[in-house]
């Protein structure tokens, strides 16, 4: 299995084949079960994505199906990534090969963790999610192109589905500033001023 390199710089689009994982409220314990958290690097997490669900389905899970190997887009339903704050979840998906997640809604921390890795989480309506999932399942070789400029998901058979994304993350991805560290460090004076005014950092002597 070869996958695209990890994201760097501005992200304008994500293209490739896709894999659908159906169901609402798929939590981070299912994306990466807790026993795989016992590691000091993320590098080996890819094969463990959805480990328990896959074992339960004995090879029938979409992540095990031959036709979906190499997929770059993951299409899900409501409240994907709920549960724990573990970044291991998006890390496992990214290392399996996922470069964008399309779904009806995402848990907030999961969305933020994905953003910090340069993995866009794109929101679609319920009907669109079902339509995209059906299209992928009907034709696993179908190539999709998620265009962040036009906010459209374009299928190679001429399908066009709209998606949405909040303005802030949308700009961050397109400008390449989705990795926040640099921006945060740039405000040295602002940080110093905040330290100077916070009562609990000044023995409460700044309280008026």
């Amino acid at each position: 299995m070869t996958s695209a390199p990890f994201p760097t710089g501005p992200i304008h689009a994500v293209s490739g084949t896709a894999v659908a994982v159906r169901g609402d409220d798929i939590d981070t314990d299912r994306i990466i079960p807790a026993r795989f958290l016992k590691c000091v690097t993320f590098s080996a997490l890819g094969p463990a994505a959805f480990a328990d669900d896959r074992a339960e389905l004995g090879g029938q899970h979409p992540f095990d199906q031959r036709a979906h190997q190499g997929a770059s887009l993951l299409v899900v339903n409501r409240n994907f990534g709920c549960g724990s704050s573990r970044e291991h979840a998006p890390q496992a998906l990214m290392r399996w090969g996922i470069r964008a997640v399309i779904g009806e809604s995402f848990a907030e921390i999961f969305f933020g963790n994905c953003l910090a890795l340069g993995i866009p989480c794109l929101s679609v309506d319920h009907d669109v999610a079902l339509a995209v999932q059906a299209a992928i399942e009907a034709d696993p070789a179908l190539t999709l192109h998620a265009d962040l400029e036009t906010l459209e998901l374009v299928g190679a058979q001429g399908q066009v589905w709209p998606f949405t994304m909040a303005a802030g993350p949308w700009q961050m991805l397109r400008s390449g500033q989705w990795d926040a560290t640099g921006q945060l460090l740039a405000n040295g004076a602002g940080l110093a001023a905040t330290v100077a005014r916070l009562p609990y950092l000044q023995a409460f002597s700044t309280v008026v």
Partner: peptide, 20 residues
């Protein structure tokens, strides 16, 4: 609030976070 590992790095580096 809970944060992800990239944000742990950000707090270590800058004692701050990007938040909505």
């Amino acid at each position: 609030f809970g944060i992800g590992t990239s944000q742990v790095r950000d707090v270590l580096a800058s004692q701050s976070l990007a938040m909505g």
